[in-house]
Design a protein around this nucleic acid. Structure first.
Lengths: 228, 228
DNA sequence: CCAAAAGTGTTCACCGTACACCCATGA
DNA sequence: TCATGGGTGTACGGTGAACACTTTTGG
């Protein structure tokens, strides 16, 4: 074993550690992620995931949340650690270990992100039409997407995309976008209601020249992420 | 965004990065993990997970595999990244980020591990009777165990415990130990055979004064970890 | 009254579960 | 011949999938 055994610190070179966050949302009926355009080399002019270096006294989760908040102005999101990428030459400057996270932004919380000082631009990009990404970020995005879709089956992660109140049709739309297929309305409603995770607010949602939809909310927001 | 933007390297303090591995096996009918007894402070005399510092030019996976091989003399195991732990004071000496992995050792590969220079001892411990662990390693072990049990449902991870050839009763025994419950023999066999992942070797296994058991092997070892 | 989305039940196939007895061997 | 673990089939209930029409509103 080569566990820590010096009295103070490990006398060999330390890698840099960053967090990068894949921020998903649904915009205009398409799954989208948040990207920043890099202002500086390497990969200047390329799009990349929001993220940055870990402060030496900062928890990993806090770092990811801070980076996310700095980019989008949104906090309190569902944020989950995804995977840690550490290939030796993933960053040409120095050895960088990236602890990656993913987050879901509810449909109604789409604050227009503001570009930070070291980014040329920041914006949402449809998942199925992403520009070339810097570093190994394309790989990170692919893994986040696989995780997201896999969790649809056995968790209630899709609620992370829902605003405080929503209709069952909106919820079904989210599933259909994520699964890339149409779902049967009756089966979908039966399944959702049997989970006993949503309740009617009692209000109706008028959305056009047709029958109004019942409005729902999540019953126990703190339990939403618990695996079925 | 606070992504890398210096020409060379990030001018703030870097944390140390380690990998730690939860090595599972089944010994004497009990789920067990491999621990080393620390020879040096901090936590001298306590048991800890095998692991150690990342070499600056080494991939994360390679580091975990190397540490594991150094401890057990076994290589080529199923090894999967688990989670990255980075609480600010998890190591009293300096800031340490631990990228954790877990591995499964087949029943027949139980080489007696040999203690490395900086460990007082190394050995297997039953999962339900673990000694107090150094650092946050108890938390790491708990997470690894939850992952292992969860994957039983939707993957074929249990085959990671099986030697090259095995009987269906042995396989069932592994599931029963991991799930902590007895399984119906007929249903278990029906399910396993329907997965079409194992095939008979044609040989019989004589194990006592009773009917010999058919010997099986995994059909496509490279596909064993693919999610159902 | 027409267009558009909301809302509602039943049938069927499949799968997981429960359950009991005979078989082959060694002592 | 007996003790021991190996090996086999069927019946039932629950769950997921397929499927079409009525309701309510705005224009």
């Amino acid at each position: 074993m080569r566990a820590p055994n010096e009295t103070f610190s490990y006398p060999y070179p330390h890698p840099a550690v960053t967090t990068d966050v894949v921020v998903f949302t649904i915009r205009d009926g398409r799954l989208s992620i948040l990207l920043v355009e890099r202002a500086n080399p390497p990969f200047a002019g390329n799009w990349a995931l929001p993220g940055g270096f870990l402060d030496i006294g900062e928890d990993l989760d806090a770092c990811a949340a801070r980076e996310l908040e700095e980019e989008t102005g949104i906090s309190g999101l569902y944020l989950e650690q995804l995977y840690t990428f550490g290939a030796t030459h993933r960053d040409p400057r120095e050895r960088v270990i990236s602890v990656t996270y993913y987050a879901l932004v509810p449909l109604d919380a789409l604050a227009t992100p503001r570009a930070a000082s070291d980014a040329a631009a920041v914006g949402w990009h449809a998942f199925d039409a992403l520009p070339p990404l810097a570093f190994d970020h394309a790989e990170i995005v692919q893994m986040a997407h696989r995780r997201l879709v896999a969790k649809l089956d056995y968790s209630t992660i899709a609620f992370g995309f829902m605003p405080k109140t929503f209709t069952l049709s909106e919820l079904q739309g989210v599933y259909e976008i994520l699964l890339h297929q149409a779902l049967d309305k009756r089966n979908f409603r039966k399944r959702m209601l049997s989970l006993d995770l949503v309740e009617e607010t009692g209000k109706l949602r008028r959305n056009g020249k047709h029958r109004p939809a019942r409005e729902y909310r999540v019953k126990h927001p703190e339990r939403v992420e618990i695996i079925k």
